[in-house]
Write a protein that binds this DNA or RNA. Structure first.
Lengths: 227, 227
DNA sequence: GACATATCGATAATTTTTTATCTATTTAAT
DNA sequence: ATTAAATAGATAAAAAATTATCGATATGTC
């Protein structure tokens, strides 16, 4: 049966968070010249349930998988590309060129996933004017005009916790519609702005606690799935 | 009614990931001299459902909250401390003193959450022997003896993707029982070893996609809850 | 060409997590 | 002391996410 699927717009958040994993692994397969991949194989490599993988892929793939062989690698990559918008590079700005900010600013890995951080802002005058691997660092005052001129919608906050809300407010004022927040404080935003918090301590908490429980009982838990 | 609760060992993973958020906010309240906090207030500040907050706190708190006033701040902090093991500082090693590794190694914030990264390892001989804010960087060869001598159970992997599995294997061999993985590859580990993956691209995926959907439809989604 | 087998896709069942509702209770105000 | 308001806690309902099951169908093998 050759399904001609129109990927649905509505998709589980959990599915969404797994797609980059599939993409990453399938990319490697493609590089190795592999032509097709089964849900079972993917599941094994990524420590997931095969049915789960199938359901995920069904959501995004334009072509049905073939019984006995699985999914076509190239097509799958194209589909995920399209679905996630990896192909149409989203532009973003970053505020707070500290240690974490620098990583994000200079890590080319994000470009592969559709995010292009075009410039970093910082209030430190000694940083402003510098470049990090080609990325300019500008003073905060330039943010508004640049964001509006370029029509940027994504902002990344990597400032110390106590400045996060302030920076957030400025971003919103400039017209930023989605914020990736690395500060460990909840941000208050208007209805129409999205926030995704990146909380390392939370991850840590899950790990450390499971370890503690594990060493007292004998749990069977092994891999904690990603978020 | 004065419940004398013995916090259960089994707790939702999602609860676990929220506890650091509560802890962080409640700590601030304590610093401001606030004595009690209600689930409603917590929920408002953290963008959560009040009932959810109550359920979470019921899991960990040793004393019931008082109607009309809420929970006692000091006691709550102690309880979360105990529950998460924040008080008995877990020691960890880190392998891969690159940009991300450096952040983790030198960020004192983690100590607050019970994680003490005692030393970093790297295979680069130019890094070995150096110190970063008091944290030594040692060559890989020293890992096994140090881990065993100190009885360390947590390992953090911040090496490039293609070296992650190799490092992971070494850690397991040394006796590490829980791994916090910042490389974007799934790790293969024995039954009794825990892995928690930290995948920035996944978070990004969720954010970017929701933004895309939002701008085409008119969704009501606002804050994406944390993982 | 027939057959066995691995895989898909769909439906159903289960589990997990979140939200809603209702009652009892404690506190603050009158 | 009485009353009103706010809140916890428990139970139930709903929603979200994962896993199990089963028939259909290609694909490789004999």
């Amino acid at each position: 049966m050759s399904r001609q699927n129109t990927p649905s717009l509505v998709v589980m958040k959990s599915t969404l968070s797994r797609l980059p994993l599939y993409y990453s692994y399938i990319s490697r397969l493609e590089a190795e010249g592999v032509e097709s991949v089964s849900s079972v194989l993917l599941a094994q490599h990524l420590n997931l349930n095969p049915v789960l993988v199938r359901k995920d892929l069904a959501q995004v793939s334009s072509v049905a998988g073939h019984p006995r062989t699985g999914f076509e690698v190239k097509q799958l990559l194209v589909d995920i590309d399209n679905y996630m918008g990896y192909n149409k590079l989203d532009e973003a700005i970053l505020v707070g060129v500290g240690s974490m900010g620098r990583i994000l600013l200079t890590n080319s890995k994000f470009a592969k996933f559709g995010l292009n951080i075009v410039v970093g802002f910082d209030k430190d005058p000694y940083l402003c004017g510098l470049q990090l691997e080609g990325k300019h660092i500008l003073p905060m005052e330039k943010m508004e005009s640049l964001v509006q001129r370029m029509g940027i919608r994504i902002g990344i906050i990597t400032v110390p916790d106590d400045q996060a809300q302030d920076v957030c407010d400025q971003m919103v004022k400039c017209g930023i519609k989605a914020i990736w927040n690395f500060a460990f404080v909840p941000l208050k935003v208007p209805e129409d702005v999205l926030v995704k918090n990146e909380n390392l301590p939370s991850s840590l908490a899950v790990l450390a606690h499971n370890l503690a429980v594990k060493s007292s009982t004998t749990s069977k838990i092994n891999t904690l799935e990603d978020n």
